[in-house]
């Protein structure tokens, strides 16, 4: 296998408790910590391990978004990716347009494997990998918890509602990661310095001649209904009484 393409989306860090703006026009992102989408870090870790086993030669990280996403790509390079591509666009595109961008890059780079996260934790869409596989007419193995490359194919175990499903897919294919696939490595300081010299190409949506899809419009944002704090009981008998009161036992 030659190349692996990995998607790294810049998202609000998973530790941040996101709040809706008081006027309902969006969520508060000013001054909030931004990170690589956690599932994408796992995708990159998996790609690096495949390369380190000698089963791939090059790992390319890709981000689509505002120029600030370069920070996340630099982190990806410091983790060990060989080079990076940023596709700049001011308004964060919809999933289908993002999938079209990935398809354009796939046609350019001809990777044997595209590794994406199963979902971006901002929009919680869980779509891009499956859409890319559909457009590319190639296999998809979503929600992967284990991945083995066997020459021209790969064996992927997927976390599904019923348990663990194993598929065999011909390469090239799209695999999206679940949390238990691996534990991403930490970036070491010297690697951050080294990463500064690695290539980071910038292309625009126009360069790729992408036709933007019709987006699903978000018209209003609201905080979720809050659950009221309930009562504290002092022991099992009181708990039993409370459950009986509610007719639950």
């Amino acid at each position: 296998m030659d190349k692996i393409l990995v998607g790294l989306k810049r998202v609000v860090d998973y530790n941040v408790r996101v709040r809706v703006k008081s006027d309902g026009s969006g969520v508060e992102t000013d001054g909030v910590k931004m990170s690589i989408n956690p599932f994408d870090e796992i995708a990159l870790e998996e790609a690096l391990r495949i390369r380190e086993r000698g089963e791939a030669k090059e790992v390319i990280v890709v981000s689509i978004g505002k120029p600030e996403a370069q920070q996340q790509l630099r982190t990806g390079l410091a983790m060990g990716a060989d080079r990076a591509i940023i596709v700049t666009t001011e308004d964060l595109s919809d999933a289908l347009t993002v999938a079209r961008v990935f398809l354009a890059l796939v046609e350019r780079e001809k990777p044997d494997l595209v590794l994406l996260g199963k979902q971006a934790i901002d929009d919680d869409n869980n779509q891009v990998g499956q859409m890319l596989a559909g457009l590319w007419k190639r296999p998809q193995a979503s929600f992967a918890s284990s991945l083995t490359i066997n020459g021209p194919s790969a064996t992927v175990t997927r976390e599904v509602d019923a348990g663990l499903e194993t598929l065999e897919v011909d390469l090239p294919a799209v695999v999206t990661t679940d949390l238990r696939l691996n534990e991403p490595r930490y970036v070491k300081l010297p690697d951050i310095m080294k990463a500064k010299k690695k290539p980071l190409d910038e292309v625009s949506l126009q360069d790729l001649k992408i036709e933007a899809a019709i987006a699903i419009k978000a018209t209003a944002y609201a905080p979720p209904p809050v659950r009221q704090k309930g009562v504290m009981v002092d022991g099992v008998p009181a708990l039993i009484d409370a459950l009986k009161d509610k007719g639950l036992i």
């Binding site: 809706v20 944002y221 609201a222």
Partner: peptide, 8 residues
């Protein structure tokens, strides 16, 4: 956002 916002 993990249910922290409901969007129309």
């Amino acid at each position: 956002y993990a249910g922290n916002a409901i969007v129309t």
